[in-house]
Computed example of a mutant assay.
Amino acid sequence: MSAPAPWRRLLAEFLGTGLLVAVVVGSGIAAQRLSPDDVGLQLLQNSTATVLGLTVLILLFGPVSGAHFNPVVSLADWWLGRRSGTGLATGEVAAYIVAQCLGAVCGAVLANVMFEVDAGMAVTERSGSGVLVGEVVATAGLVLLIFALARTGRGALAAPAVGAYIGAAYWFTSSTSFANPAVTAGRMFSDTFAGIAPVSVPAFVAVQLVGGAVGVLLVLSLYPGAGRAADAVVIPHENGAAPRPEPDRA
């Protein structure tokens, strides 16, 4: 099956990332309004909506672009696939990242408009060594999960698996699992429950990239042939068929 036109793939990444941020920010605003005195309940409502929304978005856009929605995933896809001629080409990964970042900003703005929130940059600072370690863990685990599923021919499970992982990571990581530079940048543009102050963004993005590198190293250690499955990330799509499981050899 031939690959979709490049503009269709970029549109899918733009829309998917934008709607993901709209889900995260919008559900955060709704949770804050519905449960103003219970932060724990707010996080439960926010994480539940994110799990469901992310799962649906992967199913919706995965057949077109692979549903990366995340610069770290796109970079890992390019890096792991470059030697075997699979995954994103250099120009494609740059275009994906631009589309993802633009979509994330638009998604935050859309959520603000829907809930009639005044425009403004977030003021919630998220910092501290523990929080940053949490982002490394969240991002590394996400990359490992995605490529493990693709390499073992289980990419069709990526939608529920990735949704479940992010939902769990909301709770088991100290950072509430942003794990995505584009989403992090987008959430600067909403001064709400889900926002992050611009001053906190550079450190978050830096440790997310570190987490992505850790995830790639773990993938290569556990699944040495993972690069051959880069066309099936995040979900098997028209750019390539899902690989058949086969033994990995170092």
Rank of each mutant, 00 (worst) to 15 (best):
A169S: 11
A169K: 03
A169E: 02
A169G: 08
Y170A: 13
Y170C: 03
Y170T: 07
Y170S: 09
Y170L: 04
Y170M: 07
W171R: 00
W171P: 08
F172G: 00
T173Y: 04
S174A: 13
S174D: 11
S174M: 13
S175L: 10
S175A: 15
S175N: 05
S177I: 00
S177R: 00
F178C: 12
F178D: 03
F178K: 00
A179C: 08
A179W: 01
N180K: 02
N180W: 07
N180F: 01
P181T: 05
P181L: 09
A182T: 09
V183G: 04
V183M: 06
V183Q: 06
V183Y: 05
V183F: 11
V183W: 03
V183N: 07
V183A: 04
T184N: 02
T184S: 13
A185K: 01
A185V: 15
A185S: 10
G186F: 07
G186W: 11
G186Y: 07
R187M: 11
R187Q: 11
M188A: 10
S190F: 01
D191G: 02
D191K: 02
D191H: 04
T192H: 10
G195T: 09
G195E: 07
G195V: 12
G195H: 03
I196C: 02
I196S: 07
I196A: 10
A197N: 00
A197K: 02
A197H: 07
P198E: 13
P198K: 12
V199N: 06
S200G: 10
S200C: 08
S200W: 12
P202H: 07
P202Q: 14
A203P: 06
A203L: 14
A203R: 09
F204R: 00
F204K: 00
F204Y: 15
V205M: 13
A206P: 12
A206L: 15
A206Q: 04
V207D: 02
V207Y: 06
V207W: 01
Q208V: 03
Q208N: 05
Q208P: 08
L209D: 09
V210W: 05
V210P: 02
V210M: 09
V210A: 15
V210R: 04
V210I: 15
G211K: 01
G212S: 05
G212E: 06
G212A: 06
G212W: 07
G212M: 07
A213K: 00
A213L: 15
G215N: 08
G215Y: 09
V216K: 01
V216A: 04
L217V: 06
L217M: 14
L218T: 13
L218I: 12
L218N: 05
L218G: 10
L220W: 10
L220E: 15
L220M: 14
S221M: 14
S221Q: 14
L222Y: 07
Y223M: 15
Y223G: 02
P224Q: 13
P224W: 14
P224T: 10
G225L: 09
G225H: 14
G225K: 13
A226W: 09
G227A: 08
G227V: 09
R228M: 09
R228L: 15
R228G: 14
A229S: 15
A229Q: 02
A229C: 05
A230Q: 05
A230F: 12
A230E: 09
D231E: 12
A232M: 08
A232C: 11
A232P: 07
A232G: 12
A232T: 05
A232F: 06
V233I: 12
